[in-house]
């Protein structure tokens, strides 16, 4: 089932076309990785899908509904959870409060504004659930600013998971992690892909080829190649454009 579809998505910044008529679909149960060299437009693509940026052309369908002109917060409520390339959370608050705020967003309207946050069973339970899923429940009371880098990346993912969004957009969740840290996160991503439509932006090719069901290769804002990991690994064009650089 298609959870999120982008059709001919284009974004220009002045003379630069950062994303050039990209089309892709995300389905629940599938981990879709987007790879490409720096400046290929991967983060811009995530920002377009999440609503941080408006596309210059193209459409975005969320659960079949056209959400191209919707603001970020409305898309988030309709079922997009995202994490950021640079850790982006509330550093003065506890890990639990970060997750609880993420959970609280679900039904947050004037009718619920005056509920006591300390007794709001729904958001408390959801916060505990997402912290447990990423393995951070033991650190729930720690102030976010005091968590290790790896723990912060996990907290980012936990916040994206709140309220069971159909779509997860994870922008380099493994950035800055060592191999021993990134391995369990790879397993976590695999696990998350079972009940989410997961878009993963990642630099670490070993991780991508280990966990992805499908891979889209972007170069200069365009989709260069699209396919299963084994096909991408074998593609001469991809090797020339991208994989060759690092080797």
């Amino acid at each position: 089932m298609t959870a999120l579809a982008a059709e001919g998505l284009t974004r220009r910044f002045g003379g630069l076309t950062a994303v050039d008529s990209v089309s892709l679909t995300l389905s629940v149960g599938e981990l879709h990785a987007v790879i490409g060299p720096n400046g290929a437009g991967k983060s811009t693509l995530v920002n377009l899908l999440a609503g941080e940026l408006r596309p210059s052309a193209g459409r975005i369908l969320l659960g079949g509904e056209d959400v191209t002109t919707w603001p970020t917060w409305r898309r988030a409520r309709r079922g997009i959870g995202r994490s950021f390339q640079r850790t982006n959370l509330l550093r003065d608050m506890s890990a639990h409060e970060n997750a609880r705020l993420a959970a609280q967003a679900a039904a947050f309207g004037p009718g619920r504004w005056l509920r006591d946050a300390g007794r709001d069973a729904a958001s408390l339970a959801e916060a505990a659930r997402v912290l447990e899923r990423v393995g951070l429940l033991g650190r729930a009371d720690a102030v976010a600013g005091t968590l290790s880098h790896g723990e912060l990346r996990l907290l980012e993912i936990a916040m994206a998971l709140a309220n069971r969004p159909a779509v997860l957009l994870l922008d380099e969740p493994l950035a800055g992690m060592g191999p021993e840290e990134s391995e369990p996160v790879g397993a976590l991503l695999r696990d998350l892909a079972r009940d989410h439509a997961l878009l993963l932006i990642e630099h670490d090719m070993d991780v991508v080829f280990a966990v992805a069901d499908r891979v889209t290769v972007m170069v200069d804002g365009r989709v260069l190649e699209h396919g299963v990991p084994t096909a991408i690994r074998a593609s001469a064009a991809v090797r020339d454009a991208y994989l060759g650089h690092g080797a």
Binding site: P71, W73, R74, A76, F84, L89, A105, F108, A162
Partner: peptide
């Protein structure tokens, strides 16, 4: 107050 952009991404009509 802490991070308005993050709150928007979480689904808050800030």
């Amino acid at each position: 107050r802490g991070n308005e952009d993050r709150m928007r991404a979480l689904g808050y009509d800030t």
